[in-house]
């Protein structure tokens, strides 16, 4: 009676929900980007920046979805890979760059 005394299901589930929260936050950012791009006076550059924001939002969604699927498999989940983590973080950085283009 050692390890199984602890519920193994909760930790992957908490991590899965953390990924879900992260995609929700990214959605809020994408909506704000849309509001910024659709105001009066935003030119073609603004529309391009908004399109890029949408692409990055989708990218983050795909990254999160892949990880969520791994975590939902049950059993002992595979660890997050550095490439996966970098992809998620680079999406956020690129969103900040697009936001800069929209603000200026």
């Amino acid at each position: 009676m050692t390890a199984p005394a602890r519920d193994p299901g909760l930790q992957p589930e908490r991590t899965r929900l953390a990924w879900r929260r992260t995609t929700l936050t990214a959605t809020v950012v994408a909506v704000l980007a849309g509001k910024s791009a659709l105001r009066e006076g935003a030119g073609a550059a603004g529309h391009v920046a908004f399109a890029l924001c949408c692409a990055l939002w989708l990218g983050l969604l795909v990254v999160a979805h892949r990880r969520i699927r791994v975590l939902a498999l049950g059993g002992r989940p595979a660890a997050l890979t550095p490439a996966h983590a970098s992809a998620a973080a680079l999406c956020a950085v690129a969103l900040a760059v697009c936001a800069t283009a929209l603000v200026l």
Binding site: Q11, P12, R14, T15, A18, W19, R21, T22, T25, A26, V28, V29, L32, A33, K35, S36, P77, A79, L80, A85, A88, A89, A92, L95, A96, A99, L102, V103
Partner: peptide, 25 residues
């Protein structure tokens, strides 16, 4: 997994700051 959740919490902080930048604008 705990380390991963901490990473995600920081990523959300980052996204919230970016959203804040949009909001100020």
């Amino acid at each position: 997994l705990a380390n991963e959740r901490t990473f995600l919490a920081w990523l959300r902080t980052s996204l919230a700051l970016i959203g804040g930048g949009f909001a100020v604008d």
